[in-house]
Design a protein around this nucleic acid. Sequence first.
RNA 1: GGGGUAGUAGCUCAGUUGGUUAGAGCGCCUGCCUGUCACGCAGGAGGUCGCGAGUUCGAGUCUCGUCUAUCCCGCCA
Length: 596
Amino acid sequence: MKRTHTCGALTDQHIGQTANLCGWVDSIRDHGGITFIDIRDRAGLTQLVFNPENDQALAERASRLKPESVIGVHGEVRPRPAETVNPRLPTGAIEVVGRELEIFNISDTPPFPIDDAKGDKVNEDLRLTHRYLDLRRPRLRKAMEVRHKASKTVREVLDEEGFYEIETPFLFKSTPEGAREYLVPSRLNPGEFYALTQSPQQFKQMLMVAGMERYYQMARCFRDEDLRSDRQPEFTQVDLEMSFIDREDMYALIEKLVARVWKEVLDIDIPTPFPRMPYAEVMNRYGIDKPDTRFGMELVDVGEIFGETEFKVFRGVLDKGGAIKAFNAKGLADLTQGELTNLTEIAQSLGAKGLAFIKADKGQWKSPILKFFTDAEKAALAEVLEIEDGDMVFFAADQWTRACTILGRIRLEAANLLKKRERLTIAPDAYNFLWVVEFPLLIYEEEEQRFVAAHHPFTAPVPEDIDLLQKDPKAVRGQHYDLVLNGVELGGGSIRVHQPDLQKTLFEDIFAIPPETVQERFGYMLKSFRYGAPPHGGIALGFDRMVAILTGTTSIRDVIAFPKTQKGQCLMTDSPGPVTDRQLRDLHIQTLVQED
RNA sequence: GGGGUAGUAGCUCAGUUGGUUAGAGCGCCUGCCUGUCACGCAGGAGGUCGCGAGUUCGAGUCUCGUCUAUCCCGCCA
């Protein structure tokens, strides 16, 4: 039986017509005589009626079906009796009277309910083992649709903007700086290995040297790092690179791209341009480089208030040039002892000695450190932090970065506690995009006693800071930009170095990589830059994270058809798995693990 | 590598201070039922309490170890 309509398509417009529907049995309601079957396909649900008065044998066959079986039904569309119309269903005004029934496949009883509400509560490992059943649930089906629409829109916009979609190799060579890589033994080159690309970074720059001018790719990337709810070993980036552009061009393009995706998928108008904030400011105000700006409780520098303090802890930090930061967790004075202990432990894990606080409770302030504060200091605190009864204020006194980082983390934890108490609500359709700009180009690595790239070694310095490279490397800002959305790092990129001499200086003088190593790893790149490299820059957006936000989930596993568990396994196919000795021999490798 | 949470029927969970035969809802099976849509009613089957040790007269419950999933730290240029 060939289908003529989908299960979502039939409405009262089709009354009187015949139709062939194919799909899965969603539910069976056998009344002894009359039997109703909901048939489901990708598009929706339609009620089938089988009446023994019409065809006794057919009605009996229908009533013996099992849920999730696949059937085809021929019948006519008719209106439901007025009092039995179901307004909760798009197809609730009609039903299809079954005349013929073809059973394509009888289903075993599924191991878990194929149902959004119940399915969401089922253990994820069971769902992943039977992912083909999990994906039947409307929520996941919808996620796949959103993912498709988003990638389609990305392709449309970038096509309009003159980009070529170009594929680059997955099999690359190992580049030990950066993420741990998946290695692939080379059969034809004994003892040598490919590495799967952790991103197409070097290839896309070569495409610019090659004169492609505008490249993009829905690029699969591979990183052998530990997993998180927003990190999978293979994931997808919207990867692109452009020649002859500056940062402003990039902001405009990505704002256009993102706004179109939100419009196409959610029918929401995202205001552009997006706000921009320098790295130093986001750290000062939010204590994190990917701030969630959907709520306030911003960090405040209270160092000036305590300029004359005799409180040893603050005095010591200020004398060493550190910072005293504070923020007001509005309405969190009823924090429990357990919650406070938990916050303190988090602060300590980030290097704090403790977590100082002031609780404004029933008209008075309570705090172990209150006795060290003068009345003037208290008054000043009350003013800048807008302390009211019921508030909880946290402090961090440390070197600037650490003080910000500690409170930035506590701010997020406090927000979660307030959400639980329903004192902080964030609109589900709040999308706070933000460009974070002017990152430092370099970070000093204490362990290795050298500078490393804050992002990657191909990021160009801000032109007016180039002179500082030798004099004051810490002060050099990079032409890097991060796109942040609701506290999630959605992507990042930069204007690249395109001058061979500058790139060589960065590698050898600043990052202190031995010249032989530079030659081995990046020699081809430096060489290419001597043959007419255009100024260029690019960006990569985390596509899985974008779709997760579009579908309102926090786990990218919900938007990847076949994701892996935290141990990197696919429970459906049971991979990875062992290989034969013969395979290992062909690849010239041995394992040190003995099979049981 | 480290910390937290969870693991009891096919699924979701309850199980008191360690004490008789481990329960519920859903699902499944059987029967009844002609307008339901989470159909209803009656009955029934279904358990290696993740696994392994230990303590104890006695362990789902306590201890240790271990496995799996998940959240987080480290890690992710």
